[in-house]
Design a binder for these strands. Structure first.
Lengths: 186, 186
DNA sequence: CGGATTTTTCGGTAAAATTCGAAATAACCG
DNA sequence: CGGTTATTTCGAATTTTACCGAAAAATCCG
């Protein structure tokens, strides 16, 4: 993959632009795109040369992608350089990114809310605030719980569920309804 | 809400710090936090004074929150100033943010992929690339479809589903299994 | 309409981030 | 061990973003 075909170039560039939407910077997103399109693991140097990015920047970018868990180092026999590859299965990648987003977005939110709530119970001047914070905290806890459920599901299951189409939402409504029976109202 | 109690201050500050995790900047997140904690709509001026942010910055921030769909303008009789409030129901807010994130993160990705795929069909040198792009495109289309299902569900239903706990994931597994059979009736 | 109030726009500055390239460090080989 | 190659660290330069405050524009009121 020394040379990029036009479609590769286009995808890598566009993916880079999109990176900001996803909380990555352009360069990091480009590196990831290149790895995603490559049939074989790449060295940092190859990436640096092909994308025209400083060698050190590639190093930093690869490290960030590794903290996201979407890139890992592999080695080739007889080559002491590190080679990098990204998760090939897009569903697995989805799961990994979801986990990381939860860790970075949800968990700290819960922490902030919990911390905010300690020591204000019963302060009548904060009654409304406490109510709002409690509601939000409960929400995030529910999200966490749902996440924990979904995380467990293997790719094949996720894929099949996703394909259910309309019957999926009908199923959800039904499940919710059956849950309503025991207790009258909430 | 002219004066902030300590817990309000703490929450607003922490929420501001967290804003970056969510793709907002500190100021915008703080404005939103303040609105969330306020029992009544606030004017831009109140926000500006209370948070110590320039009036014009508040204006810009409120506009951004409006593009996200989480803040809206309301009016008070006999007062020509705009007052602002945020969505109170956290579940509704979740739905709104989800919609916007899809619009900003998923839709452009799909567009990029579709565009990348046009005109390369059959180019053997791109066989592998086409395969990868197709896989990713299919993934995003499935995500879109699931999103469309979930978007429809009313708050009450979402809430109940979320409360199902373990039985939720068991249900999903079951649904997936039934889909595998020749007769997909449920 | 004329004046007062409110909101938005905009240029400039301050702050933050990204990226580079040199230097330091680490890993490896004979 | 000494030399070579690979990787990371780090300060500086560049680019991007955030924020302010003055001015412009819009809205409203009598």
């Amino acid at each position: 993959m020394a040379e990029l075909t036009p479609v590769m170039k286009q995808f890598i560039l566009h993916w880079g632009e999109m990176g900001s939407n996803w909380g990555l910077n352009r360069t990091v997103a480009q590196i990831h795109a290149m790895l995603y399109l490559s049939p074989a693991p790449l060295t940092a140097e190859e990436i640096s040369e092909t994308l025209g990015i400083a060698r050190s920047t590639v190093s930093t970018g690869l490290r960030e992608l590794q903290t996201w868990g979407v890139v890992r180092v592999v080695h080739q026999l007889g080559d002491r350089r590190d080679h990098f590859e990204t998760i090939a299965d897009i569903w697995e990648m989805f799961r990994v990114i979801l986990r990381e987003r939860k860790r970075r977005e949800i968990d700290p939110a819960v922490a902030v809310l919990r911390e905010s709530m300690t020591g204000v119970q019963g302060e009548s001047e904060n009654a409304y605030v406490i109510e709002r914070l409690e509601e939000m905290l409960e929400f995030f806890e529910v999200v966490t719980s749902v996440y924990n459920q979904v995380e467990q599901l293997p790719t094949a299951t996720l894929r099949r569920i996703a394909r259910l189409g309309d019957s999926f939402s009908r199923l959800l409504s039904l499940a919710a309804q059956s849950e309503r029976q025991p207790t009258p109202e909430m």
